[in-house]
Design a binder for these strands. Structure first.
Lengths: 224, 224
DNA sequence: ATCAACTTACAATCAAGTAAGTAACTTCGC
DNA sequence: GCGAAGTTACTTACTTGATTGTAAGTTGAT
């Protein structure tokens, strides 16, 4: 463990170099995964040796952590400018994000690959993604609370399920889209699903699955 | 031209051994990913050397392919017994699958990790997952067509989006659930989301996002 | 005796990380 | 403002260890 007290990262060239490395790492980890990508490949892309990368980041694990933090910071800075929208605008923001993402396959792939990989044993990105989803879920849940309050609706379980589900569809659609972009309309499907889920929270309908035993009789049913 | 050379795969012990290896491989690839898991680890779990595994499967890539095929076959055999349900029962079947999955974290993790990893360059599982999603999407779409036909609804785009979305939520929920099982109610959320999407197809409502002028009018300098 | 199912032994890479050196740039005493 | 001293940003070279795959030999069953 290296002593962390250093003078603040001063040189602007150095910071630029670090950013180059982080960008290259996003690309490599995105296209090969964390376990599959190598420091050599990242180094090649920025024109240095793999030891040079370790000079800047100390280890491959640390590099991944900083990649994730960096991307998160720049995304938040770019898209949300200081404050996150809330209530209905938050949902519109998510839909807009899906449209933007349709033109950013590289970053989408990095998140898709790394988030799923992070559930593996001792993955260095795990803590990041756990926290990320926790934060996102509560932001979406808060938006739901706002719009529900406006309409006098109270349904904590529904809000919790709807919040996770919205994030889940967006992620799941990305994977299918990456596998076959011609078969999946990422943005349109995201919009459809988000609207469906928001509608289900705001104007709950009787479960379409609950009624009439069709040809297949089933033992017991669980209703909401 | 059926090359039925003498006992292609006959010995029962050998088949059992191959199954053991496949089971061990699911566990290792599920917990470490394909790139991160090693033949050595799989070999240890079945009590042989890594060369023994290569004797049976030829290469690591081939092992993965057979793992995926094998799991798919046994899943289909177990759960669907000869014929896939259709129409509304298909959606009920998907919800039931989510409930079952809540008790099969190992297999859920294997699919979640490997499907996302398969979008990486030259991944040996890519063809499998492309085909799998294509098949699943068209099965779900067909179920939608059946229930829509019963009700005189026609909406091809909506059906396409809804079909991908249903598979997407299920997958996305699994990732979040694997990351934090205490924060996500996998089965309940899956049921909620599937019902929401089915409802949206059967009784489309005006988009809750479309109208403007909520309390939070956002500044017009929005970046698109 | 033959063949399948292994094992041991080895080949060939390849990866992450370390150590030590070097050139350029900063800092600072004066 | 200038040279020494230190620091930074690397490189080269190496260590350590792992990993897939191959080849050849061994054993037990048919």
């Amino acid at each position: 463990m290296t002593a962390q007290r250093r003078q603040p990262r001063s040189r602007p060239e150095t910071l630029a170099r670090r950013r180059d490395i982080l960008d290259a790492a996003v690309e490599i980890f995105g296209s090969k995964g964390f376990a599959g990508g190598t420091l050599q490949e990242i180094a090649d892309q920025v024109g240095m040796t793999h030891a040079g990368i370790l000079h800047h980041f100390g280890s491959k694990d640390q590099l991944l952590i900083e990649v994730l933090q960096h991307r998160d910071e720049t995304d938040v800075a770019d898209l949300e400018e200081q404050h996150i929208p809330d209530g209905m605008p938050l949902f519109r923001h998510l839909v807009r994000t899906a449209f933007v993402n349709e033109h950013r396959a590289g970053i989408v792939q990095a998140y898709a690959v790394l988030s799923a990989e992070s559930v593996t044993d001792d993955h260095p990105g795990r803590a990041f993604f756990e926290k990320r989803y926790r934060t996102l879920r509560s932001e979406v849940a808060h938006a739901f609370e706002v719009v529900c309050a406006e309409r006098g609706i109270t349904a904590p379980d529904t809000i919790a399920d709807a919040s996770t589900s919205i994030l889940a569809v967006m992620d799941g659609l990305q994977v299918q889209w990456l596998l076959d972009p011609t078969a999946v309309e990422l943005a349109r499907a995201s919009e459809f699903a988000i609207e469906a889920i928001v509608s289900a929270v705001l104007s709950p309908t009787p479960s379409p699955l609950a009624d009439g035993a069709d040809e297949q009789a089933q033992p017991s049913r669980s209703t909401v």
